[in-house]
Amino acid sequence: MRPEHAPAVLAIYQLGIDEHNATFETTAPTWNAFDAVKLPEHRLVALDDGGHVAGWAAVVPVSDRCTYAGVVEHSVYVHPGARGRGVGSALLTALITSTEAAGIWTIQSGIFPENTASLALHERAGFRIVGTRERISRHRGRWRDVVLVERRSPVVD
């Protein structure tokens, strides 16, 4: 992911936000805010045949404590027009490869239970459900649960 991808990345993020089942966020951040928190070495885009961004993946550290240096939280977003074509799977596979090469041992995320496509994608990629945080926060006027998923690397000790 390079700065020239920023408008498309943020537009895809906003499309996911607008569907109401991807995140608690209500608007995509500015590029500066996005850039400030996402780890630069683990930001990926998938390009379609025309060179347009079809999806993206990125991670943030879960903590600044050194004991959690190998644990990240990730996001994967696919443009609605590119869904069902393996974009999410390709991004998640590449993200796993990237993070394992850097010694990251756990990738985690929280997914709304209604986002069944994302839950299935993560299951196929080797993530397991850790639990459900019930009524963790209000989103657009209603309480929402979040399913916690994680993937522990089999190759990073």
Rank of each mutant, 00 (worst) to 15 (best):
G103P: 14
G103K: 04
G103C: 07
G103R: 02
G103Y: 08
G103H: 08
I104C: 12
I104P: 11
W105M: 10
W105V: 08
W105A: 13
W105H: 15
T106Y: 06
T106I: 15
T106A: 06
T106G: 03
T106M: 10
I107W: 00
Q108C: 15
Q108L: 15
Q108G: 15
Q108T: 14
Q108S: 14
Q108W: 08
S109N: 10
S109P: 02
S109A: 15
S109C: 13
S109E: 00
G110S: 07
I111V: 15
I111N: 04
F112E: 05
F112R: 02
P113T: 11
P113H: 09
E114R: 09
E114M: 08
E114L: 08
E114Q: 12
N115T: 08
N115A: 11
T116N: 06
T116R: 01
T116V: 10
T116E: 15
S118V: 05
S118P: 14
L119C: 11
L119H: 12
L119G: 13
L119R: 15
A120S: 13
L121A: 05
L121E: 09
L121Y: 07
H122S: 06
H122E: 12
H122D: 10
R124W: 09
A125H: 05
A125K: 03
G126P: 04
F127M: 12
F127W: 11
R128H: 10
R128K: 09
R128A: 01
I129M: 07
I129N: 02
I129G: 01
I129E: 15
I129V: 15
V130E: 06
V130F: 02
V130Q: 04
V130C: 03
V130L: 07
G131Q: 14
G131A: 11
T132M: 14
T132Q: 15
E134Q: 11
E134W: 10
E134Y: 10
E134S: 11
E134L: 14
E134H: 14
R135Q: 15
I136K: 05
S137M: 04
R138P: 11
R138W: 07
R138F: 07
H139P: 06
H139K: 05
R140H: 05
R142G: 00
R142A: 01
W143H: 03
W143I: 04
W143Y: 07
W143F: 04
R144D: 01
R144C: 00
R144W: 02
R144E: 03
D145G: 00
D145L: 03
D145V: 02
D145H: 02
V146W: 09
V146G: 03
